[in-house]
Design a protein around this nucleic acid. Structure first.
Lengths: 130, 130
DNA sequence: CTCAAATATGTTATATTATAACAAACGTTA
DNA sequence: TAACGTTTGTTATAATATAACATATTTGAG
């Protein structure tokens, strides 16, 4: 079972870095950023990332193997995630839209699947880059 | 620019294997399967995969780093892809639904993005596994 | 409280996924 | 036929992720 609130030391360190970042961070770039804090091994990063994902504090952008902080409140521990990804500047924007969530959840049910979650990634050019 | 029809030797070999497979295949498992045909290096696989994706013949399942043959006709060279993924048996099913495509394409436009494509992955248990 | 269970940490090693860089062959088509 | 784009073959290495094991810390039931 997942804790509701308290983060362990390493989890907090990793989360802080991801939250401060402007864009998605890769596991090894997180690692390089925390070596001064006594974290030396990929395992320590990946374990923290796994827990943070379980808790819904961060999301993985699958197409980039990178991680962003959760900016939404209605993703319900990551059951329904959606992102806009700019192919030029690499910006990632979490899409928080209850209608979209509802539409996709029910869509999947109709297809005979016992639905657990979905992840949607949009690609294109953001306002600045287009 | 991408060719319309003709596949090169390696591209055809890789596509054949992916089309015959029951489920998604990983790059290195493809590699191991074609070493008898004289393909020895990951590069040769990845290059074929890249081209096949460009041509819309196969899709990458991002959450699994695996590849499936395209079973749809209306994904328009992979501009709009959607999959059901069973977390138990690993089955992947391509979802081909014009309404869904339309809904998601126009959704994204409203968010101020110059839309190029999307990829949607549903997770849960398939009929057999639930 | 207290000890057992669960969770988190540290560490070394290794597996898996993917790309860089370069040389040679092939196939158009102008 | 020469120039161009594409494909191939090859060696090396980069980037991403997990296995396995020992130890420490936290938490909660009795």
């Amino acid at each position: 079972m997942v804790q509701a609130q308290t983060l362990s030391r390493n989890q907090q360190i990793v989360l802080d870095i991801i939250e401060k970042a402007k864009g998605p961070l890769k596991a090894y770039s997180i690692l390089f950023n925390v070596q001064k804090k006594g974290i030396n091994a990929p395992q320590q990063i990946y374990r923290a990332l796994d827990k943070l994902i379980e808790m819904g504090k961060i999301h993985k952008i699958e197409s980039k193997n990178a991680f962003v902080a959760c900016r939404s409140s209605d993703c319900e521990i990551s059951k329904a995630t959606a992102f806009s990804i700019c192919e030029s500047c690499e910006m990632v924007d979490e899409i928080s839209d209850a209608k979209l969530s509802k539409y996709l959840s029910s869509f999947n049910h109709r297809k005979g699947m016992k639905f657990k979650r979905f992840n949607l990634e949009f690609f294109g050019l953001c306002k600045k880059c287009k």
